[in-house]
Design a protein around this nucleic acid. Structure first.
Lengths: 359, 359
DNA sequence: CTGAAAGCGCTTACAG
DNA sequence: CTGAAAGCGCTTACAG
């Protein structure tokens, strides 16, 4: 039988049926008064029984619990929050409208928290600081237990100051304050994974076709690339688009001299452009040139021909961790401030196979 | 000067400074008690002044308001909600994990509601009915004023029954209950827009390369296509992928007989595959074959070569409308149940230019 | 025109 | 082992 929430007011229980008509009279939610009346105890006892606090006979506690279950009692979170100062609610502020980065983070947060009865307010703020302010105020009015600030760049802050707020704040995939708790991906480690895969696949001449130099993640990934390869590095900066991937291939192939046999791309969009351009030139991937991307953005990575080997920043895990931390902080547990780098992983598809199984 | 929220407790105001140390003593939030004390009125008067209710001298009202502003008073939404039975909170239930459809809906909802002080709980439930139940219970515990159910298909319900819930429910881009309020896109009208664009561009033989027949939206769009073209229709069903777009072109071109000069695609992914395949065959778009997609999914539509003319379902507008309706219902205003179809629009890029400007 | 009192639905010392 | 009372921060009849 599925759980019997909310059966209406005339429950076949051992006592107190006549009281039901009185107390259940004011239609609407079932309150603790009803539970207490039906169980034949005071509301303080009922409260303690349900919360596992106070001392009472096991029989009483059990009876109250059973009655609560039967009448479908669910405590009013507003009333409870007013007293306990915990609303079981956190706010998620994000400026990633397209959601490519925030969405998995969001899923992770919610996944982590829902089991603890914590709900998540979604506040999409683009880059509008007025709107951000409105959202933050609304969250504070509602007594959120904490705030997670999330974004799409590690080197940009959201357009609102969240320090000194009286509620814990966790920064997830966005720039935080120096004394705040910040979660980010370890892009250097991710880039090393990518470049090693190319090296293992036998590439001797690897170039990095990537995004604008102004992005910290671009610089970090490029640095890791330089430190990992043998021989002279070559980094081509452009924009985050397929078109730039095309153009980079044109540049590399149309000039004289050495051509690469491995390309480490700044993200999956660029990688897609690169792979399309190579195919159009009759260059085989991965036989002639191996390609690795960054982001593991399914819709891109799975649809390239051949499917793309790429770095996954594990943003869902990052979200879970953010949820875990904000919960801990809201419960008063001590959390070390600082930046925590979470490891990336490599998803191997066909554009670079790394070490083939040895014979 | 930017707004001066929260100045601390020693405000240069005309009266009551000595009271501040008493009342402001219990550090933390500024409550209405502080406002009342500083303004020299009772808390009931303070409340009425701030809410614009009750009768009092304009001077008193103004003074209270000014003081509230100065001390940075913001009413505790929990306490207020407990009494008024309005939490200024709504829940958004969605099973669209990838977010392509839900994200714009979400943005629209939030955009519409934030100005009314209403925050949105995000509940991502995949297709797990247990988890859906947990989320719904959590929302009810928190006394949401309403629920918006959103999805990625018009012909599938979310895996949870939302009828008989005691809070208003609006279904947005998902199948609702017969007596509920449902918002959806007008796919037939959208498809007519697409097909007319092809006709206007001079196409004589238009085919519909689309998704699985099991999708209602596929059938509706195909029906509109059949009703709009002259001559015999041809509908090719496949899956929602670029690969299917490729394959469909292969089928159409490798068989003998008539080849189309216009292709109406079931979505933008298929359209992208179609355009790539045509280019690889040396067929020019739009000169030889014009192509129109469906969804206006930026990342696809803007990156195809040439950029894709496609139908936009205006999901953000749909979201705003959903927000508007759930708000109205939560305020007790009457809303007609039934299905509301919101118009699509055509975004003209280069793959089909419709009527060129007359000479 | 203004304030004292009751109460929203709970929890938590404090008595007994 | 159990309950009466106070109170969280507000709003809303009801008196004056």
């Amino acid at each position: 039988m599925t759980s019997c929430k909310r059966k209406g007011f005339f429950i076949a229980t051992n006592a107190g049926e006549e009281k039901l008509s009185t107390i259940g009279g004011k239609r609407g939610r079932v309150t603790i008064h009803l539970v207490a009346a039906v169980a034949g105890v005071s509301i303080s006892t009922a409260s303690k029984a349900l919360n596992g606090s106070g001392r009472m006979s096991p029989e009483t506690r059990e009876r109250v619990k059973r009655v609560a279950q039967e009448v479908g009692f669910r405590p009013n979170a507003l009333a409870r929050g007013l007293i306990t100062k915990r609303s079981f609610t956190i706010g998620l502020l994000t400026n990633d409208t397209y959601g490519r980065f925030t969405l998995p983070v969001m899923a992770g947060i919610s996944e982590e928290l829902v089991g603890h009865g914590v709900s998540v307010f979604l506040c999409a703020i683009e880059d509008d600081s007025d709107r951000a302010r409105v959202h933050v105020d609304a969250m504070l009015d509602k007594s959120v237990d904490g705030i997670i600030a999330s974004g799409k760049r590690l080197d940009r802050q959201l357009p609102v100051d969240l320090s000194g707020l009286h509620v814990p704040v966790v920064y997830a995939f966005t720039k935080g304050t120096p004394d705040g708790v910040t979660l980010r991906s370890d892009d250097e480690q991710g880039a090393r994974l990518a470049v090693r895969c190319l090296i293992d696949a036998g590439c001797r001449r690897i170039v990095n076709v990537t995004g604008p130099k102004t992005f910290q993640s671009v610089r970090e990934r490029a640095d890791a690339y330089r430190a990992t390869i043998d021989g002279p590095p070559e980094v081509l900066h452009g924009v985050w688009s397929e078109a730039w991937g095309h153009e980079a291939v044109a540049q590399l192939w149309d000039r004289g001299g050495d051509r690469p046999d491995g390309i480490f791309c700044g993200n999956d969009q660029i990688a897609r452009g690169v792979i399309d351009a190579l195919r159009e030139r009759g260059v085989r991937v991965p036989e002639d040139v191996a390609v690795v991307g960054f982001d593991n953005w399914d819709i891109m990575a799975a649809q390239t021909r051949p499917p793309l080997t790429t770095v996954d920043m594990n943003l869902r895990t990052l979200g879970r961790e953010a949820g875990r931390l904000v919960l801990a902080m809201s419960e008063g547990r001590e959390v070390q401030p600082g930046i925590r780098k979470l490891p990336c992983s490599l998803v191997i598809r066909q554009s670079c196979r790394g070490l083939e199984a040895p014979a």
